[in-house]
């Protein structure tokens, strides 16, 4: 077999696959943040906590009700999304007339509550969640071993990202959404129920986080802290990409996952901070973000 810079290809490709998986989560989560930010002008700090909550919901569905992975993949995001709608109606909607920073502070408080509650009842050791039978095992591609479930995570995230992009950029509903992002008052004057749209958008963004949470459940153990550190990295991803573009958020997510994977091969000590370093460089060269629009 060939070698690249003294690194065996199995190692390189293995890390790239891991990077692509992390990138899938970055992409789906930053996509959700971008969708919410577009219409609500709120940075959803609770995104990580809701991602974690969905993983727990999937676990509970299996443990208490015997509902397996495939229904949970639909149900858990719906449940968490409905919870998001509730949060939007009862709390977030009271803050739209204020500075954006209050939205950040409120969702930070919500994240503390959600994480605290799960930590209280389930501890921090983490709960195992089995890979569904249809996706267990893996296949040998000749140059590397590809676990089926990991391939599925990448495929599923790409499908969801593409679907969301298509809905927002190519359908009539998406056109309303983009119009409301530009000028909510005018869109409302055309007889479109903007508050309803805002509510459903928040629910949808949260459901995306929930979907990522269920995808993550069999890979990482389900534990209350799984969202907290991830969300900060996703914030950096969002700063790098800029939230102006849906496709930008998706591409930046996958790209940074791959970069992180590569760093793990060539300079493992740097893998935890590489995204933050890239953020610093982007701030120096193109402060509005790679796909951002200048305000």
């Amino acid at each position: 077999m060939f070698e690249l810079l003294g690194i065996p290809p199995q190692v390189l490709l293995g890390q790239l696959l891991l990077g692509l998986i992390n990138g899938s989560f970055y992409a789906v989560l930053s996509l959700g943040l971008a969708v919410i930010f577009g219409l609500l002008n709120i940075i959803n700090f609770a995104h990580g906590a809701l991602y974690m909550a969905a993983a727990f919901v999937a676990w509970m569905l299996l443990e208490y009700l015997g509902i397996g992975y495939w229904p949970a993949l639909i149900l858990a995001p719906l449940i968490v999304g409905a919870f998001g709608v509730l949060l939007e109606r009862t709390m977030l909607s009271r803050l739209y007339h204020l500075d954006h920073l209050y939205g950040l502070l409120l969702t930070f408080g919500l994240a503390l509550i959600i994480q605290g509650l799960f930590r209280n009842y389930y501890g921090i050791s983490g709960l195992p969640y089995q890979i569904p039978e249809a996706l267990s095992g893996g296949r040998n591609l000749g140059f590397m071993f590809l676990p089926n479930y990991r391939a599925w995570v990448v495929v599923a995230s790409v499908l969801v990202c593409f679907g969301t992009w298509f809905m927002i950029e190519k359908t009539r509903l998406g056109a309303y959404l983009r119009a409301a992002t530009e000028n909510p008052v005018l869109v409302g004057a055309f007889g479109i129920n903007v508050p309803l749209m805002i509510m459903l958008t928040y629910g949808f963004g949260v459901a995306l986080a929930g979907f990522a949470g269920v995808l993550a459940a069999p890979i990482y153990s389900v534990n209350p802290n799984m969202g907290a550190d991830l969300i900060i990295v996703v914030f950096a991803v969002v700063v790098i990409g800029g939230m102006g573009s849906i496709m930008g958020a998706i591409l930046t997510g996958y790209m940074l996952g791959l970069v992180e994977g590569l760093t793990r091969v060539f300079y493992p000590e740097g893998s935890a901070v590489v995204i933050f370093v890239i953020m610093a460089i982007v701030l120096l060269i193109k402060p509005e973000g790679l796909f951002g629009r200048t305000a």
Binding site: L105, L106, L110, I113, I114, Q115, G116, R119, N120
Partner: peptide
């Protein structure tokens, strides 16, 4: 963990 939860509640009420 209740300390975290209470802090979160104070955040929410405060905002």
């Amino acid at each position: 963990a209740w300390v975290t939860i209470i802090q979160g509640v104070i955040f929410v009420i405060g905002v």
